[in-house]
Simulated assay, not measured.
Amino acid sequence: MQHLKLENHELNPFLENIKNLNLPFEHVPQQHKVLVYTPQQEKIAVLRYSIYQELIGSDFFQSKEFFNHVILGVRAGLAGLLCYDNGALVDHKVFRAYMVRKKQGKSQINYLKTKGKSRAGSRVRLGETKIFFQEIAERLTQYNTHMRMDHVFLSCATTLIPFLFKDNTVLQQAKSRQAISKIPFHISQPTHENLLKAQHQLTFNQVLIKENQFIDSQQLKKIIAKSDGFSGLDEDW
């Protein structure tokens, strides 16, 4: 498998080469993806284009005229937010809470139905958990009040999703209008530094291509055109 970077001006030549090779492709706009298949319907490539680009129909790419977005990362006891106004970072916030049981290293919310929740330490953790998610919701509400929020990019532990969305009107509305998507690579801890790296990664146009019996090396060269080599982060196919 090859990881390659495409510059913005190379997106349309890439798309044209796919069409010239008569390879079927599928656009997944919510994930900023173009999936490319062989005539036998085997997935051969994934183009993940920059969040600042958009594909018009199935014809051509162009830069977005205006785009505001939020990057949100959530783990037990730690969350981070980055707010971008048309590409400029205008606000950031890190949230911390005492949510993890010592020794076990697991979040208190995983023990809601156990006897331990009646103990003082458990009550403190549950209380801080509630405040933790409330503060995230309040910050998002502030953003939504003062600016247009076009999209939310989210990295969140699966067990925390119900607690994150509960009473969070902004996220619920973003989900209903399909304006929220999972960050397509792993973020171990949502620190300010790691979220900045995620933002940087989301602005790349990158393509993952694997060679097989249906696509030979010469066709690959046509697909990638004049692309520079690029080693991206691991992501989902």
Rank of each mutant, 00 (worst) to 15 (best):
E7G: 13
E7F: 15
N8K: 12
N8S: 10
L11E: 10
N12E: 04
N12D: 07
F14V: 05
E16F: 09
E16A: 10
N17K: 02
F25P: 00
H27S: 00
V28C: 01
V28I: 05
V28Q: 07
V34H: 04
L35M: 08
L35P: 00
T38S: 13
Q40W: 06
I44E: 01
A45F: 02
Y49N: 02
Y52G: 15
Q53R: 02
D59L: 01
S63C: 01
E65W: 02
F66D: 04
N68T: 01
N68S: 05
H69R: 11
G73L: 00
R75Y: 11
R75Q: 12
G77M: 08
L82P: 03
Y84W: 08
G87Q: 07
H92S: 15
R96C: 11
Y98H: 10
Q104R: 06
K106F: 11
N110A: 12
Y111W: 05
Y111A: 05
Y111H: 09
L112V: 13
L112F: 08
K115S: 14
S118V: 07
S122I: 11
R123W: 10
V124F: 06
E128P: 03
F133E: 00
L140K: 01
T141F: 00
M147W: 06
F153P: 02
F163D: 15
D167E: 13
N168P: 13
Q178M: 13
K182G: 15
I183C: 08
I183T: 07
F185N: 05
I187K: 08
P190F: 10
L195Y: 06
L196Q: 13
L196G: 14
Q199M: 04
V207D: 13
N212A: 09
F214N: 01
I224G: 02
S227H: 11
D228G: 11
S231V: 10
D234C: 13
D236N: 10
W237R: 14
